[in-house]
Amino acid sequence: MLERTGVPTREQIRGVTPPQEILNSKPVVIVECFQRIPCDPCHTACPTGAILEFEDINDLPKVDWSKCTGCALCVAKCPGLAVFVVDMTYSDKEAIVKIPYEFRPLPNKDEIVECLNREGVVVCEGKVIHVFEPFKDGTKVVSVVVPKEFAMEVRHVRVVRKDE
């Protein structure tokens, strides 16, 4: 289906989602990369060795979640913008999703934004708590707080400002 719609299936997502105990223990990377393409910057960007070295540059990325700190450098580096970090430990009801963002306007800290799923549908609102640009190359990483049940759905944010 992904090859027809551009939207990964639930099974595909499940395949790249870490086990529940890891999800519940720390912020952790989710690499939504399902196609063998010649590419390895996620590995070279990773400071902890969590994204393993590629034997063949066409291989799908492999993650050692035990090493991942959720720093999101790979989020900012991935040319396909296919890497996200999910932090289920944020609060009882809420999680943080770290999303690569290359649009204008930029969300402000504490701004309420629309949160979109992989099909571009708004599923909830979220609160932006952090925006940073690790490589100063135009790709921002937006950390948005969303209800936990949407943490595995929300993959894009949209700034909506009435006065504009």
Binding site: L2, E3, R4, T5, G6, V7, P8, E32, C33, F34, Q35, I37, C78, P79, G80, L81, A82, F103, L116, N117, R118, E119, G120, V121, R155, H156, R158
Partner: peptide, 22 residues
């Protein structure tokens, strides 16, 4: 019937709300 480009590019535009009709 299939997207010819890299799927990550397709996913990227889908989640910002652009439909793809194969």
């Amino acid at each position: 019937p299939k997207i010819g480009g890299y799927w990550v590019h397709a996913s990227k535009i889908r989640r910002i709300g652009i439909p793809i009709y194969t």
